[in-house]
C-alpha cells in the first residue's frame, strides 16, 4: 500500500476527516452508513472509490458535494469547510439527472444561465460543448429522444461547462452497455487529461477504477464501512483504455487490489445470506 508521497499541497480539492454518517432508523436505532472516513484528493488527481454493494460509496460522494452533512467529522474543499452544496464541484449522477422538460442545449447551458450568464452566450458555449461530446446535431432534442449513451454525453457537457475544479462521479456509466461504456471512459480521460480537475469516481467495477485512476480507495463491507485500502496506480499516462487490460502492470495491480476487495465482497455476501437465513 502506497500513499501519495508528494505531500506538498496542503490544500486538498476534497478532504474528508473522520467523517461518519448515521441515520436513525424507524425502529429507533441508528444505522451507520459510513464510519471514520478519511479521504484526501489533491487537485488534478483522479481518485476512484471502490467497494461492495451497500458500502456507502454514494454517501461519501454526497458529503464531498455538500448534499449530505456528515454526522461527525469535517468535509472541506480547498481548505474551506463545505457549507451547503460545494460550489467548486460538479456532480454526475448514476441515474438520469437531465431535466426532461428542457432540450439538450437548455440542459447543458443550465449551469451558466443559473449563474446569470445571458441566454445567447450560454447557448453558444453549450453548442461548443455539444460539439466536443459529439452531439452538435442534437441540441434541440429532448432527453427522452436520446439513447442512454447520448444522455450521458449530455450530462458530461452539463457538468463540465461550469468549469468546476472537482468532478464527483457516482457510477456515471454503470447503466451503459460495455462497448459504449469503454468509449465514454476513453472520452472522459481525454477531457480530464491536462484539465487540472480533481475527479472522485465511484464504481463497483475494479477494472474501470484501475484503468482510469491515479489512486484507488477500497471501502470495507457495510454498514458502517470505512476505508480499508489505498492503492497508487502507477500505469503511465496517457492510457489507451481499450488495451489496458492486457498491460502487465494492470494485471499485477488488479491481482493485488482484488485480493483485498475480495475479502470485503465476501463479507457483504455472507451478511446478506445470514440475513436471508434469519428471515427464512
Amino acid at each position: 500500500m502506497t500513499l501519495s508521497s508528494a505531500g506538498t499541497p496542503t490544500q486538498y480539492a476534497v478532504e474528508l476527516q473522520g467523517c461518519t454518517k448515521q441515520f436513525s432508523t424507524p425502529g429507533g436505532g441508528t444505522y451507520f452508513a459510513v464510519r471514520d472516513i478519511d479521504l484526501k484528493v489533491e487537485p488534478g488527481r483522479f481518485v476512484s472509490i471502490v467497494g461492495p454493494t451497500g458500502s456507502g460509496k454514494s454517501t461519501i460522494l454526497n458529503m464531498a458535494a455538500g448534499l449530505l452533512k456528515p454526522s461527525s467529522g469535517t468535509a472541506s474543499s480547498f481548505g474551506a469547510p463545505v457549507h451547503g452544496v460545494n460550489r467548486r464541484a460538479s456532480y454526475m449522477f448514476q441515474q438520469d439527472a437531465l431535466l426532461p422538460w428542457k432540450t439538450v442545449i437548455e440542459n447543458v447551458s443550465l449551469g451558466l444561465t443559473m449563474a446569470g450568464v445571458g441566454k445567447a452566450e450560454a447557448h453558444s458555449e453549450a453548442q461548443r460543448w455539444l460539439e466536443k461530446v459529439g452531439l452538435k446535431n442534437f441540441a434541440d432534442r429532448y432527453p427522452h429522444q436520446l439513447s442512454g449513451g447520448m444522455r450521458k454525453r449530455t450530462a458530461v457537457a452539463q457538468a463540465w461547462i461550469v468549469n468546476p475544479d472537482i468532478l464527483l462521479m457516482d457510477e456515471p456509466f454503470s447503466a451503459l452497455d460495455v462497448q459504449t461504456r469503454q468509449i465514454m471512459e476513453n472520452e472522459l480521460l481525454a477531457l480530464w487529461q491536462e484539465s487540472g480537475k480533481a475527479v472522485v469516481f465511484i464504481t463497483h467495477d475494479l477494472d474501470e477504477a484501475i484503468a482510469l485512476s491515479d489512486e484507488v480507495v477500497i471501502l470495507g463491507a457495510g454498514p458502517g464501512s470505512t476505508v480499508v485500502g489505498n492503492y497508487e496506480i502507477t500505469i503511465p499516462r496517457p492510457r489507451d483504455l481499450l488495451d489496458i487490460r492486457d498491460d502487465p502492470k494492470f494485471v499485477e495491480l488488479h491481482r493485488e487490489i482484488w485480493g483485498r476487495l475480495k475479502i470485503e465482497v465476501s463479507k457483504t455476501y455472507e451478511a446478506a445470506r445470514a440475513e436471508e437465513g434469519e428471515v427464512a
Binding site: 452544496v85 460545494n86 438520469d96 443559473m114
Partner: peptide, 27 residues
C-alpha cells in the same frame, strides 16, 4: 430527488429550483 440535487449542484437558488425543477415537474 436526483433532479433537485443535480440542479442544486449546478448552482440553482431556491427560486431557480422552483422555476426550473419544481413547477415543470408538478405540471
Amino acid at each position: 430527488r436526483v433532479l433537485v440535487d443535480n440542479a442544486r449542484m449546478l448552482g440553482a437558488s431556491e427560486k431557480q429550483l422552483l422555476r426550473h425543477v419544481f413547477i415543470p415537474s408538478a405540471l
